[in-house]
Structures are given as structure tokens and as C-alpha cells.
Computed example of a mutant assay.
Amino acid sequence: MAKIVKPLSDQQLLRYSRHIMLPNMDIDGQEKLWNSKVLIIGVGGLGCAVAQYLACSGIGKLTLVDDDKVDKTNLQRQVLHTENNVGLNKCDSAKQSLQQLNSEITIDTHTIRLTGEVLLQTIQEHDVVVDCSDNLTTRNELNLLCFKTKTPLVSGAAIRMEGQVATFTMDKDQPCYQCISSMFGEQELTCSESGILSPVVGVIGSLQATETIKLLVQIGEVLSSRLLMFDAVTMSFNEFKLNQNLTCSVCSK
């Protein structure tokens, strides 16, 4: 069955006019965003930054997944959560803020951690998955299920004063997240243990949102087979080429 495309209203054409003015976006590109569905795993520092820009950009449907609650220590960097929402589930808190930014879009929430078949089915219902989680186990499972469904995965991470972004299109002969995560040590650093400069998650989250929009509209070059590293200390970006691991348990078969 052909996908039903919802056209933009006159008010939406005005609202998103600064997007539409871009030659490689135009009305067609904005309509693609309006008819897209994006799954965001984690609504912490990265997830808040990603979600607010995707909501403002007119993504038709956002699905937020997080089983955590807002803590006072989150307020330093998780910009969708307010003082009044401390103790509230992060999905519910973020949804309140996002609806004030854009009341036209659909926002679904899952306040439990999704795994296995439920996560697989949820991924299949979306066009892009944005990984804003904070643990290697979740990232590896997301990667595996995105590879199975051939759903593009936009991965981001931030700690201390540094961060990284990569996009995995799940195309043939392209690396997946497992290709690089297999090189990581078993020890996982967290913000509560190592600290995080608040604007760094904003930088990385903004880059993830940019990659997501480019994937959906099919404009520009995404970070496929490339890892972009950001260092706030020196205010520098470095790019590294990613190669497929020929012994990868996910994508080499």
C-alpha cells in the first residue's frame, strides 16, 4: 500500500519558510519531514537537544523512550526539563516542553526500557533511530535491531568536554556501530562519575538532529563510514574513517 503523504497547510508553509528557502530543501523536503517518524532512545542531555530541534523542524512524529526520572542534577544540561518537573518521568517532562515548542506534531512516549521484540517492532515503525542512550548494552542492541530492519541509526555520545557523532545507514559493506564498539573497553564512564560540560551535549545533540534531517530529506552527505569527534577544550573537530570489521558479529555475515 502506498504511503499517504500529508501536505503542508498554508500556516505550515509560513512556519517552516526558512527551511523551504533552502534550495536543497524546498517544499518537498519539508513535506518529507512532516511525514516522517523518528525514534529517540534516551531523553537526557543528548535526547533533549535532539528532540527540541526535530520538533521545531516539523518532524511529523517523535517517539521518546526513557524509563528514568528527572533529577535535580539533570537540570544543568537537560534543557527540556524544568525545576517543576523534578521527579517526573523524563519522557513526560520532555513531552510537555516539546508540545509548547510545536503543538502540531505527534509525540508518543514509552516510560519503560524497550528491549527484544517490542523494541524491534517499535524500530520498524520509524524512519530513523537516534541513539541518545548512556550505556553500551543498549547501543549494541539498537545497532543489531537497526541492522536487521535496515533502519538508519544516528549515534551520539558525550562525556567531560568531548563528544562524538556517527551515522550508520546499514547499507551493504558499510560499518555498523558494533564495528567500533568492539574496540571499546568494558569500563563505561558516566556523567555522574566524570562530569560533563553542559553545552557539549547541545553541540552533539544538534549534530545528531542535523544528521537525522539530512537522512530524512536525503540532502548532503551524512557521516556514513565516518566518526566525528568534538573537543571543547581546544574547540576542534576531528574526523576518522570507519571501516567495516570483517569479523563483526552483526554486519559481516
Rank of each mutant, 00 (worst) to 15 (best):
M1K: 04
M1G: 12
I4R: 07
K6P: 00
P7V: 07
S9D: 02
D10R: 02
Q11V: 03
Y16S: 10
H19M: 14
D26G: 12
D28Q: 15
L33G: 09
N35E: 04
K37V: 06
G45E: 10
Q52R: 14
S57L: 02
G58W: 01
I59L: 04
G60S: 08
L62W: 13
L62G: 05
L62P: 03
D67T: 00
D68M: 01
K69P: 01
K69T: 12
V79K: 03
L80Y: 03
H81L: 05
H81R: 03
T82I: 00
N84W: 01
N84A: 13
N89A: 01
K90R: 09
D92G: 00
S93Q: 05
A94E: 03
A94G: 04
Q96L: 10
Q100L: 08
E104K: 11
E104D: 15
I107P: 12
I112H: 15
T115A: 14
V118N: 06
V118E: 11
Q121F: 01
Q121C: 01
I123C: 10
V129G: 07
D131N: 01
C132V: 07
C132E: 10
C132S: 06
D134S: 04
T137F: 00
R139F: 09
R139N: 12
N140I: 02
N140A: 01
E141T: 14
E141Q: 15
L142A: 12
L144T: 10
L144H: 05
C146E: 08
V154H: 08
G163D: 09
G163A: 07
Q164D: 09
T167C: 15
T167E: 13
M170A: 01
C176S: 14
Y177P: 11
I180C: 03
S182L: 08
M183F: 07
G185K: 12
E186L: 15
E188P: 00
T190M: 02
S192V: 05
S194A: 15
G195D: 00
V201F: 04
V203L: 10
V203W: 03
I204Y: 06
Q208V: 07
K214A: 10
K214H: 12
L215S: 11
V217H: 03
Q218P: 02
R226G: 00
L227W: 10
L228S: 07
V233M: 11
S236T: 13
S236K: 11
E239P: 00
F240L: 13
K241M: 04
L242G: 14
L242T: 13
N245S: 09
N245A: 05
V250M: 09
C251M: 09
S252E: 06
